[in-house]
Design a protein around this nucleic acid. Structure first.
Lengths: 329, 329
DNA sequence: CTGAAAGCGCTTACAG
DNA sequence: CTGAAAGCGCTTACAG
């Protein structure tokens, strides 16, 4: 293991000087700097990160806690965060909360023990809390954790876009499958959708609306989808808007099982635009969450020097694909 | 920040003793030990991991490099690894190689700088290499990295099981879509399938076989699937075995587009058993990779003290679902 | 602009 | 069985 001492010796300078060129401190003059850099190269010097961390109480790591990395949307988010962190020469420590508050608290705590540059949390629920203060900046991503500033897609706006789209197509009997109402995302998406539909129904034709609730996953989509579609034909909606792509894909599966054709007999929409959304049959109309931008913004907030970290809501765009069409008469 | 000194002072012992109860060194007698533990609790003491790392040249972290965390199989693997690591109070540092050797090398290098307990690599390709030695144990998972011991499913055995299944159902015109042949997984799965089919065809009815090659992803499955299925009916195979679930799901999509019913007109099989496999329409017959066991074994190898790290091939089971049936006449 | 030196918080031989 | 002390490799005031 070569150390600053070895480098200093070879370059004929003090360890302080070596450290200063390492930290890109501009006070070291050109000729000396080059000599040191050459010595580092010759010796294939790599700084000991633990020693640096001990001195600076800071390690070039970003902690990331997600409910479940197996969820395609969180995987997408994790990938973007890793990419953004790498641009700043930071590594990412990943932990799953398994949608459990207690596990979440422990995971965050474990990450904080490493003294990371910051922690990004996609919260398991609304009520999770750390229970103590920390100097490490914490940012909520997609789903708010405790009091920490949230970077997220404007769920309400996105859902309203879906409402507009379905209404414009002519749908007047619509079912909405919301996410869990004990989460902010679940509520925002639902409120955004419902209030827009109500406005439209008030100003124009009346709209018949059914609302259901479930976890954001495939299984609930399939189950609730079947429930909705098995009601007799007269009551059956012509469109189902789901609060996530996974829910929507579950609905597609239920429709297929019941021999209900999408989109001729039923329109289906999702939210997120996971990569699967354009692979299912038919391809899913949905709201694209700007994952790159979410990740980028979250990282920016962490590296924000002036301590003015703030909430940010980013707009998502609607992506219209084959799963929606005008209702058949 | 409370330190060992604070704890020592409060407990009326030396810092050495505090450190010894911390490291579960059994030499500290019961009464003293309890006094120290009480002091730690009272002061809410948390050890400084950086300081510990500096002394021991070791941090409680497992590095994990995957080609792309967005790939559902790797996400599954990552989740299991995180769970296993947590059992040993280790955190996981995640990096994506984006299927690029150069990035992979850099990512592994960056992880090694943190002096982790071990690094697990799911290689991007066969030819990637680190180019230098390290004392940190490195384990290849699923796809071999350089010379490092590989923990993987017995791909050849799994593929042979698929071959048996299709042959037993009565398929005699079969297409195989292999993964990239510059990867060991790609080759093992292909060889396992082809050699079993050839044996069966030799001992029993002859089998007509077409072989294609692509990346392991959805897009290639769809593209190659379309190519296969658009050949005139006479030549069209009655079954397509794909080297991964993602490929198989792409094939399902192509079949759907071409109005070819699965399984009545075409049987389709995958490999991996990603969670999506039981959600597509129809549900996919595939080989279940024992992800928990893979993760567990990889971790065991890393923590193997006696330095006798060894290769291991774990059997995968066939999961028969709706995407396969006897060929129609 | 550069060097000498202190010290971050821990672990671990070394005594006793 | 426990304490006193050295030292891991770095960064950063403090001098000069």
């Amino acid at each position: 293991m070569t150390t600053v001492r070895d480098v200093a010796k070879r370059a004929g300078v003090s360890v302080g000087t070596v450290s200063r060129v390492l930290s890109k401190n501009e006070t070291v003059k050109q000729p000396l700097k080059e000599r040191v850099q050459k010595a580092m190269q010759d010796l294939d010097y790599k700084p000991n990160l633990a020693a640096r961390a001990l001195r600076t109480s800071q390690v070039a790591v970003i902690g990331l806690v997600v409910p479940d990395i197996t969820n395609p949307f969180f995987a997408q988010l994790a990938k973007c965060i890793e990419t953004e962190a790498a641009k700043r020469n930071h590594s990412v420590m990943l932990a799953n909360s398994h949608d459990d508050e207690e596990t979440e608290r422990k995971q965050i705590s474990a990450l904080l023990d490493h003294a990371p540059r910051g922690v990004i949390v996609v919260a398991a629920s609304d009520t999770g809390a750390l229970g103590y203060e920390t100097i490490v900046p914490i940012i909520s991503l997609d789903r708010r954790f405790e009091k920490y500033p949230l970077i997220a897609t404007d769920h309400s706006d996105g859902s309203a876009k879906i409402a507009d789209h379905l209404y414009d197509l002519g749908h007047r009997k619509i079912a909405y499958i919301s996410g869990p109402q004990n989460t902010e995302v679940g509520r925002s998406r639902r409120n955004g959708f419902l209030s827009r539909i109500k406005t439209l129904g008030h100003d124009g034709d009346p709209v018949t609306l059914q609302v259901f609730e479930g976890q954001f996953d495939y299984e609930h989509g399939e189950e609730i989808g079947r429930e909705i579609l098995q009601s007799n034909n007269f009551e059956r909606p012509t469109a189902i808007a789901a609060a996530s792509d996974q829910l929507a894909i579950g609905v597609l599966r239920a429709a297929r099982d019941l021999k209900i054709d999408v989109p001729t007999e039923l329109s289906v929409t999702g939210f997120d635009d996971i990569s699967l959304a354009r692979l299912v049959v038919p391809r899913l109309t949905t709201i694209r969450q700007p994952t790159d931008l979410l990740a980028q913004t979250a990282l920016e907030q962490i590296f924000e020097e002036r301590g003015t970290r703030e909430e940010q809501a980013l707009k998502g765009d609607i992506v219209i694909r084959g799963s929606t069409s005008p209702p058949s008469l």
